[in-house]
């Protein structure tokens, strides 16, 4: 066990900063279930476009809605969409990856991996736009669209890691003991790739938030009146010149959250996978 020192903190700098930023938005989202400074759907035209003051800490938008409240509830939307989308990726992608690895070289492996390549070949946001355009805009379709693109990510990473574990001696021992490949996959392979999945999950989570903001920005994500950071940005566009806070605040929220999650992911990778620690560019 290392002694806690400046050097240790320096080593975990990414993780600490990242976790703090992520926690900030997670708690904002959680608190919003119980309390927001104002009702987020309440429109009060007489108080529109206020700059931050004591009553409205982050000002009001063009309908007189409190921006802080919208950011808090918007965090909820972003986190919910990204979380479920990553969940879809892990729940479907990981078993596919495990199956693929256990049948290495077989037709199932080929089939799954080529299917992954196919999905990977499309630019994800463009296909997400296509999906939501065809099946209708809304948070649910955004979740599905983003989720579909998380499947190959997790399938690949699981397969890659699982393949090297299949070569290990303890797997040979398990085989000799008569365990089926499925059981080995779940009892021995999965726990050993878990770290990797958590790291990747964090990165994908941040990409999910970005994708949700992108879809909402073009009007295909969460529909009004459900607040969403992307739509706040879109609404602010024509008012940037005289009310810049309308764009700066949700923009900053998106940047900080994505930055926080990425730093957290990097920090966790440094811990789980020391080999990579000093090789990152």
């Amino acid at each position: 066990m290392e002694k806690v020192s400046i050097a240790t903190i320096g080593k975990y700098r990414n993780l600490i900063i990242g976790s703090m930023l992520s926690l900030l938005f997670l708690s904002a989202a959680l608190i919003s279930f119980l309390w927001t400074p104002f009702d987020v759907t309440e429109i009060d035209i007489t108080n529109k476009l206020k700059t931050p003051d004591q009553i409205y800490w982050l000002g009001t938008d063009h309908f007189g809605r409190d921006i802080l409240s919208m950011i808090m509830v918007g965090a909820r939307t972003s986190i919910a969409v990204a979380l479920v989308a990553v969940g879809i990726g892990i729940v479907i992608g990981t078993p596919l990856g495990l199956l693929s690895a256990s049948r290495k070289g077989g037709w199932i492996d080929e089939f799954i991996m080529r299917g992954n390549d196919l999905v990977f070949a499309f630019p994800s946001l463009v296909i997400a736009i296509l999906i939501t355009a065809v099946f209708g805009a809304g948070a649910l379709n955004a979740i599905i669209a983003i989720g579909i693109f998380n499947i190959p990510v997790f399938a690949r990473i699981t397969r890659g890691a699982a393949l090297s574990i299949w070569e290990k001696e303890f797997i040979l021992a398990a085989r000799v003991a008569g365990k089926s490949t499925t059981r080995i996959s779940y009892e021995h392979i999965l726990p050993n790739v878990m770290n990797l999945l958590i790291v990747q999950g964090t990165i994908q989570f941040s990409l999910g938030i970005l994708a949700e903001a992108g879809l909402s920005y073009v009007g295909l994500g969460a529909q009004p009146p459900m607040p969403s950071w992307g739509r706040m940005l879109a609404d602010a566009q024509t008012m940037v010149s005289f009310a810049p806070h309308l764009a700066l605040i949700p923009g900053t929220a998106i940047i900080l959250t994505v930055l926080g999650l990425n730093l957290m992911g990097d920090g966790m990778r440094d811990i789980f996978d020391p080999k990579l620690r000093n090789t990152r560019a």
Binding site: T41, E42, I43, I45, H62, F63, G136, A137, G219, Q223, P224, P225
Partner: peptide, 22 residues
């Protein structure tokens, strides 16, 4: 688009929920 959001809020205040689609 903007009028719709305002009307949705005004209707909600009297109990009418609207599902907005753009």
């Amino acid at each position: 688009r903007r009028g719709g959001e305002i009307i949705a809020a005004q209707l909600r205040a009297v109990g009418i929920e609207t599902e907005i689609s753009n």
